[in-house]
Amino acid sequence: MAADNPARPVVEPAPRTDMVDLHALYTAHWRYLVRLAVLLVDDVSSAEDVVQDAFVALHKRSGSLRDPDAALAYLRASVVNLSRSVLRRRQVVRKHLRVAEPEATAGADSDVLLRDEHRAALAAVKALPRHQREVLILRYWSGLSEREIAAALGISAGSVKSAASRGLAALHRVLGGGPG
């Protein structure tokens, strides 16, 4: 006996509303992320590569993100981690080749754009230990909260407070001339 079953209608899946809009993220945050990376790696070309790699990594994971609203935080953490990798690779190259990397040449208008105190402040920040430098950049340049910084760097909020305090004290000693 053959059963007469009417064909079941094909149900199209509803479009996912929890997908990450990479184009919108890229358009809205690319410049900010490159600036963040430049502060960490001190090189525009490497910073752009870091941000591009962060977006590629997000694209690969975008379907598995539990919270698409956390995509910017994911990108920020990726930029920090990829910047660390760039700096580690530079150290390895310098160590093994014993050749100093040529300094990047500043543009002709860089003196006009940055006053002496800005250059001194940037130099002082760059001289800080990596952990303190990252915390201060994320806190004061990116405007992140202690909780957001802790998530981006994978450390506790107490470590963020400690690194910020030590970093600010060091900057005060260098720039302010006082004991900190």
Rank of each mutant, 00 (worst) to 15 (best):
V44N: 01
K126W: 02
A121I: 12
A106Q: 05
Q52G: 08
L72Y: 08
A73C: 01
A164G: 07
D53L: 08
L153K: 06
H59S: 09
R166C: 01
V50F: 08
T17F: 15
L171F: 02
V38I: 14
L87W: 07
L122Y: 03
D21Y: 03
R119H: 01
K95Q: 13
D18N: 12
A163T: 06
S110Y: 00
N81D: 12
L40P: 08
A14I: 02
E48P: 07
A7K: 10
P179W: 02
V92G: 01
D69T: 14
K126C: 00
I149S: 01
R61Y: 10
S85G: 12
R8C: 00
H172L: 06
D21L: 08
R61M: 15
R98E: 11
P15M: 01
S156K: 01
G180S: 05
G167A: 04
D4P: 00
Y26P: 00
S162I: 10
K126P: 06
L58M: 15
H131N: 12
S78T: 00
A7L: 09
V20D: 05
R89M: 03
L82T: 01
I149E: 02
L33Q: 13
E117R: 09
Y26C: 04
L175V: 05
L40V: 14
S62W: 05
T17I: 12
V86P: 13
R89H: 07
V86K: 02
S85A: 14
Y140H: 15
Y140Q: 11
E134L: 10
A169C: 11
A127V: 07
V92R: 07
V79P: 11
L87M: 13
S45D: 11
P13S: 03
K95Y: 14
G178E: 09
L58Y: 05
R133D: 04
S46M: 09
T27C: 12
V56C: 12
R115H: 03
V41N: 01
L122D: 00
A163K: 11
L39W: 08
A150W: 14
A120N: 06
A157T: 10
D43P: 02
D49G: 06
V11I: 06
G154C: 11
H29L: 10
P129T: 10
R173I: 03
E12R: 13
A170M: 00
G180H: 08
R61A: 15
V174S: 11
D53C: 11
S159N: 12
D4S: 11
V160R: 03
A170Y: 03
Y74T: 15
Q132N: 13
A47E: 02
V50C: 04
S142L: 10
S156I: 01
L22G: 09
D67E: 15
S110K: 04
S145A: 09
V86F: 05
H23P: 00
A100N: 14
V112C: 11
G177V: 01
R89L: 08
R16E: 03
L87T: 15
W141N: 12
G107C: 08
L65V: 15
S46E: 06
D4R: 08
D18F: 00
L175C: 05
A121Y: 13
L175E: 06
N5R: 13
I149R: 02
A3Y: 02
S110V: 13
S78Y: 00
R88V: 14
D43H: 05
L175P: 03
R76C: 10
